[in-house]
């Protein structure tokens, strides 16, 4: 009996040149200028960052650009403890939802510049920027503690004003 065929190689490669679209393009331009700029929905007035082409609640274009603060509040987090291919940081590190002051939805990013054991809900953090900005959100290396007193976060993940 002949040996069983256990594998067949059929490599596939598809290449794309994807355009960011109007909204993401203006966001990447703001990153190059060292600013975090979201967009406000003209109907429900929520400020989205990163900005979205359309408000998912109201289905209208978010046309107004709104600068938001470099500082924000951690509303939830997870400590990444395992290594994987393509990882930018060495574990353990914290990824977190951070509601920036002036924004209504959290930004997913990294909390660094402190021990992972210090990361907590309500913690105040601020963006740490690379010296030479690139058109990517990774131009903000991570968010580090800014020393301000913690804010209260309710069980819906909203920062209590």
């Amino acid at each position: 009996m002949s040996a069983p065929v256990t594998q067949m190689k059929a490599p596939t490669r598809l290449e794309y040149l994807v355009h960011a679209g109007a909204t993401t393009t203006t966001f990447l331009h703001s990153i190059l200028k060292g600013q975090l700029v979201g967009r406000r929905c003209p109907v429900c007035h929520k400020v989205y960052i990163p900005p979205r082409g359309a408000c998912p609640t109201c289905a209208v274009l978010c046309t107004d650009e709104v600068p938001v603060s470099n500082s924000g509040t951690v509303t939830t987090f997870s400590i990444v403890r395992i290594p994987f291919e393509g990882q930018r940081l060495t574990p353990p590190y914290a990824c977190a939802h951070i509601v920036l002051d002036g924004a209504d939805v959290p930004l997913l990013h990294i909390v660094g510049g402190c021990s992972v054991d210090e990361v907590r809900v309500g913690m105040r953090v601020e963006a740490v920027w690379l010296e030479i900005p690139q058109p990517t959100l990774a131009t903000v290396t991570w968010f580090k503690p800014n020393g301000e007193p913690d804010r209260a976060v309710n069980d819906r993940g909203e920062v209590v004003p």
Partner: peptide
């Protein structure tokens, strides 16, 4: 169409 992303296309055409 380099200007509009998928959400922008969909918002415009469905409106």
């Amino acid at each position: 169409e380099h200007h509009m992303d998928a959400a922008e296309l969909v918002q415009a055409v469905t409106a």
